[in-house]
């Protein structure tokens, strides 16, 4: 008796007919549903366009994390630097791992111009995009204090390493406009993967 009363209450209290409707998803429209109540069942065969889960991202939270720099320079911040200033920063913050002038130490060698006899893969003989230098240094260097460099410092370090790899001269100002225009010697050698499975070994 109580159940009946509650059921009646719930039906009458729902003025909006849609609230009575049971909506389910089933890829197979022929799926038989065992329904004997007063509720209507609507079977959706297409996944809903959205589920309404999650919230709109705020501009502030996107800005805080959106630090990437694309190959065309999109994402490069305001600021600038040059090789002279870069050398000072490099000596303080990078030389311990990468050698006094980037010739390598406990960690990677960074300097070795295209055509040099250097065997290691360096910025000069292997890196295809100048923008990658800025992006990588800013997001994760120095190793003991990742992400601690100011944008001007990153520009200067980028300029210094480009200069040491004989790609720019020591006086060139590096900023959001000039950096993407620096063409890296190795870029011409890059090709997209052409392996496609099948019998041919590539």
């Amino acid at each position: 008796m109580l159940l009946l009363f509650l059921a009646a209450l719930s039906i009458t209290s729902c003025k909006d007919k849609q609230e009575d409707e049971v909506i389910v998803y089933n890829k197979n429209p022929e799926a038989q549903l065992n329904t004997d109540s007063a509720t209507q069942t609507k079977i959706i065969t297409e996944m809903p366009a959205t589920f309404g889960i999650g919230r709109k991202a705020t501009n502030a939270e996107i800005k805080a994390w959106d630090i990437d720099v694309r190959a065309d320079g999109k994402g490069l911040p305001y600021g600038s630097g040059n090789a002279t200033e870069g050398k000072v920063i490099f000596t303080q913050k990078c030389a311990a791992c990468h050698g006094k002038e980037g010739e390598g130490g406990a960690y990677a060698r960074l300097v070795g111009a295209m055509g040099d006899t250097v065997k290691a893969k360096t910025i000069g003989n292997y890196w295809p995009w100048s923008t990658t230098l800025f992006d990588y240094i800013r997001r994760t260097m120095p190793y003991n204090m990742p992400g601690s460099l100011k944008d001007d410092e990153v520009y200067s370090l980028t300029a210094y390493l480009l200069y040491r790899n004989k790609i720019i001269d020591s006086t060139k100002n590096i900023d959001a406009k000039s950096l993407p225009k620096v063409v890296m010697p190795a870029r011409q050698y890059y090709v997209d993967d052409d392996r496609r499975g099948g019998p041919e070994v590539r």
């Binding site: 990437d68 694309r70 910025i123 890196w127 295809p128 995009w129 923008t131 990658t132 990588y136 890059y190």
Partner: peptide, 10 residues
């Protein structure tokens, strides 16, 4: 377009 990050280039 791809971003040409360090891990996919060097």
């Amino acid at each position: 377009q791809p971003f040409m990050t360090r891990e996919e280039t060097s």
